[in-house]
């Protein structure tokens, strides 16, 4: 079970990711999107989920039991090639329902000290 003390804590990302045109194109084309100038609205997941996974696995949760429950994006600045992103993840809530642990993590994709995209993932760790 997640240590309740971790709820509310922010885990700063340790590395910076440069968004490449190739990665935007691969993601867009996989979704049938022909506009390749701007990343699709769900592209942030390719950065945010890895960071959430690393934070939650380090906190003792079993990633092999995870199911994605809910997902939300708030896009302040659309992602484009060349942006240098760091990703900070905050554990916003954790609760246990019928033995399943339900954790919401907000990941902020930050460019030049501004949040470009916030991504909320609610993850269900099955009992």
């Amino acid at each position: 079970m997640l240590n309740p003390d971790l709820v509310g804590r922010t885990f700063p990302g340790t590395k910076s990711t440069t968004i490449t045109q190739e990665s935007i194109e691969a993601f867009a084309l996989a979704l049938g999107e022909s506009n390749l100038q701007v990343a699709p609205p769900t592209y942030a997941i390719t950065i945010s989920l890895e960071q959430s996974q690393s934070v939650l696995v380090d906190s003792g949760l079993d990633w092999s039991r995870v199911v994605h429950g809910d997902q939300r994006f708030a896009i302040n600045k659309p992602l484009v090639a060349g942006m240098q992103i760091t990703c900070n993840s905050t554990i916003e809530s954790a609760r246990v329902v019928a033995g399943n642990e339900i954790v919401t993590v907000r990941s902020d994709l930050i460019e030049s000290d501004e949040v470009a995209v916030s991504s909320w993932s609610t993850l269900v760790f099955r009992a």
């Binding site: 199911v67 809910d70 994006f73 659309p78």
Partner: peptide
Amino acid sequence: GGSVKVQEFSARF
């Protein structure tokens, strides 16, 4: 009219 116009997007699986 383009990904650039999407401000918020949410779903439940």
